[in-house]
C-alpha cells in the first residue's frame, strides 16, 4: 500500500509536469489556432493537477469534520488548493470559451485558421 502510494505520487507530479510541457509546446509551436487554444487548455489542466497534488497528504482524508473524524485535522488534505483549483478551472473555462469564439471570428474574417497567414496587424 505504502509503495503503491509513492508510485502514485510520482505519477501525479510527473503527469502534471508533462501536461504543462505538452501544453506549452502545443501553444508555442503549432500553427493552427484551434491547436493553440487546445495547448493553452492542456497547460491549464497541468497546473491544476499540480496544485491539487501539492495539497495532498499521503493517506489523508477529505477535509470534512464528520462522525469518526473529529480529531483528525492533521490527517486531512489541505482544502485551500482545492478551492483555488475550482476557481481556476472556471476561469480557464471562460478563457477557452472566449478564445474559441475569437477563433470563429478570425476564421470568418480571414478564411483561414493558420496563424502565420493572419497578419494584417504587425506582429
Amino acid at each position: 500500500m505504502e509503495k503503491y502510494l509513492d508510485i502514485l505520487e510520482i505519477a501525479i507530479y510527473g503527469s502534471a509536469v508533462a501536461l504543462i510541457l505538452i501544453g506549452l509546446y502545443g501553444a508555442l509551436t503549432k500553427k493552427s489556432l484551434i491547436k493553440i487554444v487546445l495547448g493553452l487548455s492542456i497547460m491549464d489542466s497541468g497546473i491544476h493537477l499540480m496544485m491539487i497534488a501539492l495539497g495532498y497528504l499521503k493517506g489523508g482524508t477529505a477535509p470534512i469534520f464528520s462522525k469518526g473524524f473529529e480529531n483528525s485535522a492533521d490527517q486531512m488534505v489541505d482544502p485551500i488548493p482545492q478551492a483555488l483549483v475550482l476557481t481556476a478551472i472556471v476561469i480557464g473555462f471562460g478563457v477557452t470559451a472566449v478564445a474559441l469564439s475569437l477563433v470563429i471570428r478570425l476564421y470568418r474574417h480571414h478564411d483561414t485558421l493558420r496563424i502565420d497567414e493572419i497578419k494584417n496587424l504587425k506582429w
Partner: peptide, 27 residues
C-alpha cells in the same frame, strides 16, 4: 479579433504563470 487573440494568448500565458507563482508562495 486579431488584436484580441494576440492579447488573449499573452493573457492566458500570464495567468498560468501567475498561478504557478502563487502556488510556489503558498507551498
Amino acid at each position: 479579433a486579431e488584436a484580441a487573440f494576440k492579447f488573449l494568448l499573452m493573457g492566458a500565458f500570464a495567468s498560468s504563470f501567475l498561478l504557478i507563482g502563487i502556488m510556489i508562495i503558498y507551498t
